[in-house]
């Protein structure tokens, strides 16, 4: 596995290769159930890393350990030069620099779209009034929703809500964006708009760690694809390698099921 890691040099990191996320031997158990069993992963500045794998493989838990929404059981996680696994680490300071986009959007339903994007600027960064509004509007324009500033989340489609959630995270000027299956709760026709926004973000050089089931997105936008199964990284590398020509049998098996859901195993036909 270390050989695979070494082979995967980030294609867009410029100058000195700087790790924004540095995960070493990360373990996480819920009771007796070990969800992550020793993960090593780096994400470099400007890099887009997509994590794929079957449900229950620990992808989301891995992502949530990066900003400590889940407390790791063992191992170290360094994020933008802070060791978040250190009990003395001020996690709120680190989280300011780490945007997160959730599967269920989690917009604040009692606040307008604009306020969703300004409340944390106001309460966390102390950036108030017109300046916070300006930043929020800039990012809402970026996701194509500048005309929805006064709407409330319930008045928006799922795709629009998710784009607001992206703008909300961007309004904090993050150095890293985490995406936890951002399109999995969307109607199929709404997925494209969200992926377009994410593509543009990637092209602008944002460092992104993306848990996704969108193979087309991973193939086109990722610098590196990580395939996880049963709490471990099975294979990682360039998208054309991991998705295009997987080395591991488990990766091939997963991709076959994802890319051709109607495919029936030879042995199981007719039962």
């Amino acid at each position: 596995m270390t050989a695979v890691t070494a082979a995967a040099t980030p294609s867009r990191a410029t100058g000195t290769v700087q790790a924004v996320v540095e995960i070493r031997d990360l373990r996480k158990s819920f009771g007796d159930n070990e969800v992550l069993s020793g993960i090593d992963l780096d994400v470099h500045r400007g890099e887009v890393v997509c994590v794929i794998g079957p449900s229950g493989s620990g992808k989301s838990t891995l992502l949530r350990c990066v900003n400590l929404l889940e407390q790791p059981t063992a191992g170290t996680v360094r994020v933008v030069d802070h060791e978040v696994t250190d009990p003395d680490c001020d996690i709120d300071r680190v989280r300011r620099k780490v945007g997160m986009v959730f599967q269920q959007f989690n917009l604040f339903p009692h606040l307008s779209v604009l306020r969703n994007c300004t409340i944390a600027q106001d309460k966390v960064l102390g950036r108030k009034g017109a300046e916070a509004d300006r930043v929020a509007r800039m990012h809402l324009e970026r996701v194509g929703l500048e005309d929805k500033v006064d709407a409330f989340p319930a008045q928006l489609s799922g795709g629009q809500q998710q784009r607001v959630a992206i703008a909300r995270a961007l309004s904090m000027d993050p150095e890293l964006m985490l995406f936890d299956e951002p399109t999995s709760a969307l109607d199929p026709e709404l997925v494209g708009d969200v992926l377009t926004v994410m593509r543009r973000l990637a092209d602008d050089g944002m460092t992104m760690l993306v848990v996704t089931h969108e193979m087309a997105f991973a193939r086109e936008a990722a610098d590196r694809v990580v395939f996880m199964d049963a709490g471990a990284i099975v294979e990682e590398g360039a998208p054309e390698q991991v998705i295009g020509a997987p080395r591991e049998a488990r990766t091939r098996e997963f991709l076959r099921r994802v890319l051709d859901p109607t495919h029936v195993e030879p042995g199981s036909a007719g039962r």
Binding site: N67, L69, D92, R93, R95, R96, V98, G99, M100, F102, Q104, N106, L107, F108, P109, H110, I119, A120, K123, V124, L125, A165, R168, A169, M172
Partner: peptide
């Protein structure tokens, strides 16, 4: 639960998230 998580992930302390996000809802 996602409301508290979203607020925390934006850097709010748990007290701040409670006061600004959870209790109003």
């Amino acid at each position: 639960k996602g409301q508290m998580e979203a607020a925390r992930s934006l850097g709010m302390s748990s007290g701040r998230a409670m006061a600004s996000i959870v209790i109003p809802q």
